[in-house]
Amino acid sequence: MIAERSTIVTENLVKRFGEFTAVDEVSFIVHPGEIFGFLGPNGSGKTTTIRMMLGLLTPTSGNVEVLGVPVLEQPEAIRSRVGYMSQHFSLYNDLTVLQNLRFYGTAYGLSNDGLNQQIDRALQMAGLEGRESIRTHELSGGWRQRLALGAAILHEPEVLFLDEPTAGVDPLSRRDFWELLYQLVADGVTVFVTTHYMDEAEHCHRLALLQRGQIIASGSPDEMRNQGMHGQVLEIESSDSARAVKVLRAAKTEGRLPLESVELYGSLVHVIAEGVESLQDALALELKRSEIESGRMAVIEPSLEDVFIAYMRD
């Protein structure tokens, strides 16, 4: 039943490399037409999971179904129905934009008019019209990323797997890229995307947070905000935020202040605690004792980054 309605189902996926467990009992469901984010630091098992979902890597144990197809038994059956953009720029640098698109189009079985039509669409989407004969190594990061996306959707896949598609791309290009993803989702494509940028999590419909191969939290951004926090977030301006973090953490471990966590947040300090508003004076005093001037203090809505840090500390 679930397999029919869900685009992707993974059950207790495990991948061990010798002694090392890269992916540990990972289970999740991706619904049709959503952007599902797989969030976690480098080395947390994101790429390994995506490779198993595509049938490129055999799991040690567990199950994967994509579009109702058991991937372990019939990896070939999903190839033409899914698109994949692997972690590193995966087009041929020495070939031109057009040669790359033509190769991937033909690889996915397109020919003649169908191929030309799709290539035109991809060029238009990537904004590379008129630059077909440029070699891809001459393109900047943002263009390449859009071209790689264009190549991945030539065959109009039902599901798109994107492994850190925006790594190393400037913020403006990242935003453009997400715009493209929204367009695709509007056309009915399901997107599975991994990232280690916390701010990109807000763009996803649902998320799973991965740490050391395990899913430690999942849900929509709002759900995760509500479940993940014990307490509220107080934002503090101070004369020396880096030192302020150290001082407050010391106060926490020595039990002088009942704090959940203390994090540096840009040039500000975020303190999370139950009833944090009433602790403002105590915090100011603690800082003053170490000759740190505290400025404005305000209770704020937690960002997903606050939430994730709270999860990962647990």
Partner: peptide, 14 residues
């Protein structure tokens, strides 16, 4: 080395 092989393996090319 360049990761294009992985991309190739995800296509229907056997």
């Amino acid at each position: 080395e360049h990761g294009t092989l992985e991309q190739l393996m995800a296509t229907p090319i056997t």
